[in-house]
Design a protein around this nucleic acid. Structure first.
Length: 786
DNA sequence: GCGCCCCTCATACCC
DNA sequence: ACGGGTATGAGGGGCGCG
């Protein structure tokens, strides 16, 4: 019989010595199904040296085969490696593990250059080989079988054919469960060895909201959580930070109570899998903290900030409780209800974030080919690589090994010195997908690159400026081929999007699709220059930026020739006076001569530059303030400094009055001295980028982190430390204190005035020749300081 | 002992 | 564990300075 399946999760197993791929999904009749595929033979390739023929190598393989669990040995005469035809031998083994073992032995045979594709997991290889992507529709022949392993699904099948893609686009109706937990500890970060969970809230996309609350013990919470999941049977389990917090905590608490956290559709517990995510077999466990980087406008990636930005938290609503408050609130019976409400709100925010970002996550999984629960945790490089591996397979290209290489830097993009001051009516002209289009039009790819000394082929070469790297014009390279399909897909999506109304349900899916195609397109250049990449090529990256520099340089010359004033430019954009006539001439001229599309992106009614590159602010034609690079756009300045700078920018851009800005600053400083500015606006947030012991210098945020650690708080790499600067003598790092441990009375307000507020404000006002002294209050040694 | 210069380290941004 | 280019602030050493 035929089965149509939308794969949600898959795993590779070895059962009774036989490799088995388990495909968990939803069928077109809305049933949850498990398909077992026992016909997928693990294998790898031996790549032959040039001049060695099959028989001699194969006889040597046969001679060594007996202790190696080799099942099949086949010639592969039509494969390519970096675009060149090669001879390879396909070796099948009983299991993926045996492949690795056999590869190590057989790679030493004379005439074998290397072994390939032995370093891929069974499930990955299955997806690549059968061209199956999760979160899409596939059809295959199956035969119903007994549910021997008690999988928690409606049906279990045995695969009778490989899956084939079918043209169904709609997403099945998914059951989504979001959750969050709060733990109780009196000494710093709660520890699962010691401290219980006090409440766990759950919310589903069917509208159910449940809260589990501890009595003497959290045993009932864990049992209730497991029972709830088994009953609701979610396809997606989501949270915010659950891979590092909730899941490890729940697992340890369950262990301590002698309970099984049996929440999956198999017969196990959640477990750590590739890229450090937590896998719940048969479901997709998605931690939306992993997608916070896709929201670059939010600088400090707390749940509250992300929720607010995405509209998942209404104006006035807040998630005001921080970790240090929890134990107080739980202990105080009167206050306990506030904590429980907070927990519910948190979970509801998570559910809303899930509903906002899930389309993107699903489309990313479907385009890249990684399962939904992996794709978030996989770094950009690995997402790109998985996509490329799938494309390589379609093109009959063998997949290069991952190798360790030395790193050599290379030159990047051009950034112009801005013309400082205020400019009216400025248009930003952007090249559309500059690097991808350069790479495509110049056939820039690892397999088209001509190494030094290689003769020019009959079809000719493209030669990169400055660096003189050469790329054969024919045949079309791997990257070019990939770009062509990505850019074509994007155009097709844009066309279909235009046909639909914004409130159309398919519009959301198409828009998410279009976004992920764009994200992936833009990731390939960076991937090519990453030393860890399988398809790494420094020459590719270096040639691309060289063509980019030539492009922007020529564009600037053409703009000047056209009589336009060039105010600034960075990589693939130039800022010019908005002279409609001349600009449209320029656009035409550039596209004609350079063959790349350039278009107006932003229009500023007025824009302000200092002497610095990459930092400016302007009023967009719709009246919004757009701040780039300046303190307002950074997460490591106090809100006090950012708020003042933003106000100053608004005043000077709209009212053109530096004097008014100065008055505003004076008033703000007076408010600060009488403590009208909220304490939280004086917290500085900085990320720990390495373990504390590895820091070579004593820095404020590092010392604040040490204080937290000393008080029982746990901190790991990537955690943000919030600290304040207190009064006293000595270095800043001696006076930096975690914000939880200090209060307004202890703050060094002079530091905040001078180093935060005035520094940020003066950066803007210096353009108008306002001095720092003009910004200070008349009585700098006001008694309220000390 | 203090200010100044210059350098390194650290972070976060832009595209 | 994708790229290079850039700004900025704090720390820290060396130096002059009666």
């Amino acid at each position: 019989m035929k089965l149509r399946i939308w794969p949600l999760d898959l795993n590779g197993e070895v059962a009774d010595g036989v490799s088995e791929v388990r495909l968990w999904g939803i069928d077109d009749d809305d049933r949850r199904v498990l398909v077992l595929d026992r016909s997928f033979q693990p294998y790898f390739y031996l790549l032959l040296e040039e001049g060695f023929d099959f028989p001699s190598v194969i006889s040597e393989v046969d001679a060594q085969a007996s202790p190696l669990s080799i099942v099949t040995v086949e010639r592969e005469a039509d494969k390519k490696f970096f675009g060149r035809p090669v001879n390879a031998i396909k070796i099948g083994c009983t299991t993926a593990k045996e492949c690795v073992k056999a590869g190590r032995v057989l790679a030493k045979i004379k005439g074998v250059k290397t072994c390939l594709e032995d370093d891929l997991r069974l499930a990955s290889k299955y997806l690549v080989d059968h061209e199956v992507n999760p979160c899409g529709w596939w059809e295959l022949d199956v035969e119903p079988i007994e549910n021997e392993t008690n999988a928690r699904v409606d049906e279990v099948y045995l695969a009778k054919s490989p899956p084939k893609q079918i043209a169904l686009t709609e997403t099945p109706s998914l059951r989504i469960l979001s959750f969050s937990a709060i733990c109780y500890g009196t000494k710093g970060t709660p520890k699962p060895e010691r401290d219980p969970i006090v409440t766990l809230s759950l919310a589903t996309n069917s509208g159910a909201v449940t809260q589990l609350v501890a009595d003497d013990s959290d045993e009932a919470i864990i049992e209730g959580f497991v029972a709830y999941i088994r009953n609701f049977d979610p396809d997606i389990i989501s949270g915010y930070g659950i891979n590092t917090s909730e899941w490890p905590y729940l697992l340890e608490r369950a262990r301590r109570h002698g309970l099984q956290l049996h929440v999956d559709r198999g017969d196990g517990e959640p477990h750590t899998s590739v890229y450090g995510h937590i896998s719940v077999t048969g479901r997709a466990n998605v931690d939306f903290y992993e997608f916070a980087d896709e929201v670059p406008d939010v600088k400090v990636k707390t749940l509250e900030n992300i929720a607010r930005y995405l509209g998942a938290l209404k104006e006035g609503e807040s998630l005001p409780i921080d970790d240090t408050e929890i134990s107080k609130l739980w202990t105080d019976r009167e206050q306990r209800q506030r904590l429980l409400t907070h927990s519910l709100q948190t979970t509801q925010s998570v559910l809303k974030i899930t509903q906002t970002l899930l389309d993107f996550a699903i489309q990313l999984s479907n385009l890249v080919g990684l399962p939904l629960d992996h794709v978030g945790t996989a770094a950009t490089g690995f997402r790109t690589e998985f996509y490329l591996m799938k494309q390589a397979h379609r093109l009959n290209e063998l997949i290069p090994r991952r190798t360790r290489r030395p790193y050599f830097p290379y030159a990047g993009a051009t950034v112009l010195k801005p013309k400082p001051g205020l400019h009216d009516n400025v248009v930003v002209l952007d090249f559309k997908a500059m690097y991808p289009n350069i790479m495509m039009s110049k056939n820039v790819s690892p397999d088209t690159y001509l190494h030094e000394g290689e003769p020019v082929p009959p079809s000719g070469v493209y030669v990169a400026p400055e660096v003189a790297h050469r790329f054969r014009k024919q045949p079309k390279g791997f990257y070019s081929t990939v770009f062509t399909s990505l850019l074509t897909a994007r155009e097709e999506l844009t066309r279909r999007l235009d046909e639909r109304r914004v409130d159309d349900s398919e519009h959301r899916v198409l828009d998410a699709r279009q976004q992920v195609v764009k994200v992936l397109t833009n990731a390939v250049y960076g991937y090519a220059g990453w030393v860890g990449a399988r398809w790494y090529s420094r020459s590719v990256a270096e040639a691309t930026t060289a063509w980019g520099r030539a492009t922007i340089t020529r564009t600037i010359a053409l703009a000047s020739e056209a009589g336009l004033k060039v105010i600034y430019g960075d990589t693939d954009s130039i800022f010019v006076t908005h002279d409609v006539e001349k600009v449209s001439q320029l656009l035409e001229r550039v596209e004609d001569e350079l063959g790349l599309e350039i278009r107006p992106a932003k229009l500023y009614t007025s824009v302000l530059f200092t002497e610095a590159k990459k930092r400016y602010a302007g009023l967009l034609s719709d009246g919004r303030l757009d701040v780039v690079g300046l303190e307002v756009a950074r997460g490591d300045w106090t809100d006090a400094a950012k708020n003042v700078q933003e106000a100053v920018l608004k005043i000077v851009l709209t009212e053109r009055s530096p004097e008014k800005a100065v008055t505003f600053i004076h008033n703000y400083l007076r408010d600060l001295r009488v403590r009208k500015i909220p304490y939280r606006d004086l917290i500085i947030w900085k990320t720990l980028t390495k373990p504390l012991a590895k820091y070579k210098v004593r820095a404020p945020h590092v010392e604040a982190a040490r204080l937290l650690l000393g008080n029982g708080w746990e901190l790991t790499v990537d955690d943000k430390v919030g600290y304040v600067i207190t009064k006293g003598d000595g270095r800043l790092y001696e006076r930096a204190v975690p914000y939880q441990f200090s209060s307004y009375d202890e703050l060094d307000l002079e530091y905040y005035e001078v180093k935060q507020i005035l520094s940020a404000a003066h950066r803007v006002l210096a353009v108008f020749d306002v001095s720092l002294d003009d910004l200070k209050l008349q009585n700098p040694v006001d008694t309220s300081y000390k």
